[in-house]
Amino acid sequence: MIAEAIRAKKRAVIPYVTAGLPDIETTGEIIRVLGEAGAAAIEIGIPFSDPMADGPVLQKASYRALQAGFTLDGLFSKLSTWSSSVRTPLIVMSYMNPLMRRGFEQTLARMRDEGIQGVIIPDLPAEAGEIYGQCQFMGMDLIRLVAPTTTGQRQKEVVSQCSGFVYAVSVKGVTGARQSLPIEIRRQVEALKTLTDLPVCVGFGISDARQVEEMLAFADGVIVGSHLMAKIMDSSEPVRTARETFMRL
């Protein structure tokens, strides 16, 4: 239960981890230590050859994971072990194409059976109603992104076809750590909270404890991806680095 898990935390931080980096075994270890360290939920990124919503760090992470031999079968063979190793809800983040390749519904059903509770799709089609219906039917959360450019009418539409939490994108742009975040994000989150009872979490650009504090003053949680993956990729001890980086947030 993703929404409950986020609400249960005083300081809900959701780390993002690219699967298969440096290898699929290590990803499992990283997930375990992040769960133990108190992550509210964990996003598992499926590497994609053409990650158009990602900045340099997550592009590199995707590329390296694919070079290192990441496959969907390899991932699927691990998911149930991972989901039973932590009490933290696991979420998959994937572009549309890897999810659709072997049939969208079959792929989602497989992930659900292995214990994945939600999915985030950065290039979800404009009309997402059908996909939301499929996720509902399967008992999986479809976490939707709301951008700084999303208008009031579209905000309503998105949050009405969203579950788990609402992912408020802090900046216009791609993923990646930023020195400072635009102040408009506060208004955006407050507006979203008038439209939904779901937790509203902020992601894109968050890279230190100060920013986490700032965001948690009005948001229900934060997502940290690029900052964590940059540290993991630079480290010779990725598991320990993942834990330490998370603890410092």
């Binding site: 919503a53 290039d123 979800l124 404009a126 700084p148 450019t149 579209r154 994108v169």
Partner: peptide, 12 residues
Amino acid sequence: GQYVPETLLPAL
């Protein structure tokens, strides 16, 4: 179709 980041939908 339009399989794009949410940020771009208003622009489209």
